[in-house]
């Protein structure tokens, strides 16, 4: 079954051409011009990835991203005409996983989609983990467990809701626990972005992840910043 995409853009030309081009790439695409219409989409729950323009009439892209995040952890790619503004950071903070800027080449959108779908949550167990896919990250504040078999994060018996991207980020850090990973390395491994990738993506996701796994996100003890170098996971 092909991957289902929802394209949300109020520009008729972009919406139509992007839908056609993505269909050519083998995706199943539904397209909407407004956030309100998109939220009424009957197959909303089956969408695998959202492609969302930020500037919309009515409810804007940020509102839509927040609304989707409230409902699920499905990957969201933001399409924006403003690459160098705080709009990008705001969209990432609202819960978007990645972004492409207009004008884009369709293969760039394809690359972003592939990067997000490269390692689905139900991944094979990481060979490095001795406990058969279960990594205990933090025992101090109740055991925080990264279950690479189930593709989940748990604290005690409670599931910690992380997005697909946050899960990948946490797993990359866990596989290199105790070692510093630079933003560039994380960008490459989690987002499949090259040398010119936007390091703000990493920072925003680290921040979001901390709010979910740290006892005190403003004083991180598990996912620590190594000034000038990157990030390191210190399992307790």
């Amino acid at each position: 079954m092909s991957v289902r995409l929802l394209v949300l853009d109020d520009d008729d030309g972009i919406r139509t051409s992007l839908s056609m081009a993505l269909e050519d790439e083998g995706y199943a695409v539904v397209a909407h011009a407004s956030a309100e219409d998109a939220l009424q989409e009957p197959s909303l729950a089956e969408v695998d990835v959202f492609l969302v323009d930020l500037m919309l009439g009515g409810m804007d892209g940020f509102g839509f991203v927040r609304e989707i995040r409230r409902r699920s952890d499905v990957p969201i790619i933001v399409i924006s005409a403003k690459a160098d503004t705080h709009d990008i950071v705001a969209a990432l903070e609202a819960g978007a996983d990645d972004y492409v800027t207009k004008p884009f080449e369709i293969k760039e959108v394809g690359a972003r989609l592939r990067a997000l779908r490269r390692r689905p949550p139900m991944a094979a167990p990481a060979p490095a983990s001795p406990s058969g896919g279960v990594v205990v990250l933090d025992a101090a504040h109740g055991p925080l467990v990264l279950d690479t078999l189930a593709g989940r994060v748990r604290r005690g018996d409670d599931e910690v809701h992380v997005t697909v991207t946050e899960y990948h980020l946490l797993r990359e850090l866990a596989e290199s626990a105790g070692r510093v990973l630079s933003r560039q390395v994380l960008l490459d491994r989690v987002w499949d972005r090259g040398y010119f990738g936007d390091e703000r993506i990493v920072d925003v996701h680290v921040r979001r992840l901390r709010t979910k796994i740290e006892a005190d996100p403003s004083e991180p003890t598990l996912l620590v910043t190594v000034r000038g170098l990157g990030y390191r996971l210190d399992p307790g």
């Binding site: 520009d11 030309g13 972009i14 139509t16 051409s17 992007l18 056609m20 081009a21 050519d24 500037m55 005409a81 403003k82 207009k102 004008p103 884009f104 080449e105 369709i106 293969k107």
Partner: peptide, 25 residues
């Protein structure tokens, strides 16, 4: 200037994408 750039980006995006579609058709 930013608005102009923004307004021009949309048609350019559509053109680039449409040409890809045309190529692939």
């Amino acid at each position: 200037a930013a608005d102009v750039a923004h307004e021009l980006r949309s048609p350019v995006t559509t053109l680039m994408t449409s040409i890809d579609v045309l190529d692939a058709a």
